[in-house]
Amino acid sequence: MKHTIIAWMEDKPGVLSRVAGLFRRRNFNIESLTVGHSETPGISRMTFVVDGDDRQIYQVQAQLFKLINVTAIEDVTHEPTVIRELALIKVRADNTNRAEIIQLVDIYRANIVDVDVDSLIIQIAGSQERIDSLVKLLSNFGILEMVRTGQVAMVRGGNTRPPVRHNGVS
């Protein structure tokens, strides 16, 4: 099954390369990967979604744990978690259908962030499913371009995580 895993790592040269290299070399099936700053200066936070059986999910964490620059790992799959993704979608739009598209955007609580005579850029943040659903509807109008960030995740509630370090034994 798919697991959502958060990894914290030192912001050092080559660290992304190490993580990407590890995923490739160990043949892990990564579906989505995002990385950015965390609340701690010098520490980056990566969210990735990996598909696999229990052995593979354990291995991906244990192998990541071995990278010297990785400071903590947490599998949040079974935690109450906010998971979001951001997408920018450029759609073909003119006077005949612009109103209809704006209606859809409202329903999905998305935003229009650019308007041109024959196109719109729509920004949506939400769950993967909600974005998939909007993309499907917009495809009827003609999607000119799209970019999706991949998922970021945060566990709900007031406990400051990070991060229990992965203890190595499942």
């Binding site: 052995r55 244990a62 744990f65 071995k66 190595g168 034994v169 499942s170």
Partner: peptide
């Protein structure tokens, strides 16, 4: 002492 070796190849 390397947790990644446990369960890597065998149950």
């Amino acid at each position: 002492l390397d947790p990644a070796e446990l369960g890597k190849n065998l149950r």
